[in-house]
Write a protein that binds this DNA or RNA. Structure first.
Lengths: 249, 249
DNA sequence: AAGTGGTCTAGACCACCTG
DNA sequence: AGGTGGTCTAGACCACTTT
């Protein structure tokens, strides 16, 4: 695997998990009830109030607690929503988080020269060497998605990507390569009726509603690492995003 | 040091907006380029590094910059996609940003007691008074969406919402009310085939692919301000989201 | 008045990257 | 080795709520 040196787990995260375990999830504080004061908790866990507050903020962002100025921190009713299309995770990771097993079939891969369309999407010259991969994804043996990926040469050795094709996710490979530095992906989402060829590949009815995700993965230095198109059947996924208020800029 | 008048707005937010203005939005730093160091910026704005870093984190969460340990903060490719689903904006706002005019028809509104479903979604008791609004949205005279909204009593006076129903957006009203404090919405997205009744309302073919957005708007203190369901036809929208790398993955 | 959360600082040390 | 970001602390003061 692409192991990294084991980092020490930040105190903020440790304390956050302690708080969640000691007060929220075990029901020690009933929904609507107040946590002990920040001062008290900071002493109890042996951290500064700054660190403790960072943990609180993290729990707040997760939707577990809310603060009332001059009163205290209250435990909320909802458990927050586990997401999320808004995080740059592979389908494999999403499936794993919901406790399901994802497998791959019908893998095809080719090294091809970029045509006009690919050239425009990947921002490389026409004729540039590109790895094209196609495959079907299954959850618990049921076909749930058809994936079409293009990776330009010079990002990751093609052999490495090919080795992962039948097993895992291209995105996971790109994320694991520290040298690549994939930071985010701009994704367009569209509902589509399945065309006959796609319906056949997915063993689904022609015309069934599917989600088409068209995604460009960017590196921190502005290069394009991948163009991914996915046709996904909704039955086995919950596509969730958290839409946040726009900042003052 | 900061002025008496400015004291009301937290320094972290002020500095964040300064940074966005001075380095990102005006193009002073190229996409992929590095900002000055934290030390330098902290001195320049006259704040501690702790405060400066909180501002940086805010910009990072907004998808504007990314950090590279030991190197610096890089400006990401902004501006490209403004009309993002990952921002908490109304359809009206999205349409306006693309230069189109959105109108409303077939407005129905009722004050009803919450049934079991509404009660569970809004986290209010069964029988709690709720405003229910239904309407069709059009872009340039073409029907593009059917909206179904529930707003619990005690958020905004029903009269205020009703006055906006035929004109603008409920979400815009909620966002404008500072006392409400809507911070984010958790949204589930699903592709669906249009049922006959919806197809009729939207003047679209039965079975056509549409996007169903099911959204719960939260306030900072953990109350639910709105439950919104929207069936949207894809022809006149581009649904975009920026998926960001998970922190600490 | 007392207690709570909200904000901010100065300084320290660690981990990572580059030359 | 030197600079950069990553983490953490102790202490201070402000704003809000309850008593």
């Amino acid at each position: 695997m692409y192991s990294q040196r084991a980092r020490r787990r930040p105190l903020v995260e440790q304390v956050r998990d302690f708080l969640a375990r000691d007060f929220v999830f075990n029901g020690a504080v009933e929904p609507g009830g107040l946590l002990p004061s920040e001062k008290e908790l900071a002493e109890q866990y042996g951290v500064s109030r700054v660190t403790l507050r960072a943990s609180m903020r993290s729990l707040q962002e997760a939707g577990l607690i809310a603060s009332r100025h001059g009163v205290g921190w209250a435990v909320l009713r909802g458990e927050g929503m586990r997401q999320g299309l808004d995080r740059l995770n592979s389908l494999e990771t999403l499936a794993r988080e919901t406790g399901k097993q994802m497998t791959t079939e019908n893998v095809e891969s080719d090294e091809v020269p970029a045509d006009a369309t690919i050239s425009a999407k990947l921002q490389v010259p026409v004729g540039y060497r590109v790895l094209c991969a196609k495959r079907v994804k299954l959850i618990d043996g049921v076909r749930v998605g058809w994936l079409l990926d293009y990776v330009p040469e010079g990002i990751v050795p093609f052999d490495v990507v090919k080795a992962e094709l039948g097993v895992g996710s291209i995105l996971d490979v790109l994320l694991a390569y520290r040298a690549v530095g994939v930071e985010y992906a701009d994704t367009e989402i569209q509902p589509v009726n399945l065309a006959p060829d796609l319906a056949e590949r997915l063993h689904a009815p022609v015309g069934a509603a599917a989600l088409l995700m068209d995604s460009i993965a960017w590196t921190a230095d502005g290069r394009i690492a991948e163009w991914a198109q996915s046709w996904l059947l909704p039955e086995h996924f919950r596509f969730c995003i958290r839409r946040q208020r726009q900042i003052g800029g």
